[in-house]
């Protein structure tokens, strides 16, 4: 399993807000265990998708100069669910950002139906080569896959 829980950014307002989407498909193995015969996107992975949207938004604001780590989720509320065929829309907004961390507010929805809302505390750790390798690889791979090309796939990158 690849740890990419967003498919594409569709909006990116530097240092302020970002919107990403995640298409839920029946080809994802985990949906066959969660739950057998009744596939539902696990809440923990929706949490991760929102965190990836917000974490990249914050890291970009800080010019990717430090290791941005999700440290704490002070609040998470789930309103409904996501099934294969649904497109989750994640919206992230930076509430506060400073050199040692930041607070990001995120929501998830399908169309107009709210799915989840959460608040994240990210800690910014000093860069060190060994520790940042994974994050750099993650971002570069996302870039190669086109997830960072903001815009709808059909229209191509904006």
């Amino acid at each position: 399993m690849r740890w990419f829980w967003i498919d594409r950014f569709v909006e990116f307002n530097r240092g302020e807000t970002a919107r990403a989407i995640k298409n839920v498909t029946l080809a994802e193995d985990h949906l066959h265990d969660h739950f057998p015969g009744y596939p539902v996107m696990p809440c923990s992975l929706i949490i991760e998708g929102m965190a990836q949207t917000g974490g990249i938004l914050l890291a970009e604001k800080l010019n990717f100069e430090s290791l941005v780590v999700m440290a704490k989720i002070p609040k998470a509320v789930f309103h409904s669910w996501a099934c294969p065929g649904d497109t989750l829309v994640y919206d992230a907004k930076i509430l506060d950002a400073r050199e040692d961390g930041g607070i990001v507010e995120c929501t998830a929805r399908i169309g107009e139906r709210p799915v989840a809302e959460a608040e994240y505390v990210f800690a910014c750790l000093p860069n060190s080569q060994s520790k940042t390798a994974c994050q750099e690889n993650f971002l570069k791979t996302m870039q190669l896959l086109g997830a960072g090309d903001v815009g709808p796939a059909a229209a191509g990158p904006n």
Partner: peptide, 11 residues
């Protein structure tokens, strides 16, 4: 990590 959160909220 809560100390960072507390500082953010106090600010």
């Amino acid at each position: 990590i809560d100390f960072l959160d507390i500082v953010f909220r106090l600010e």
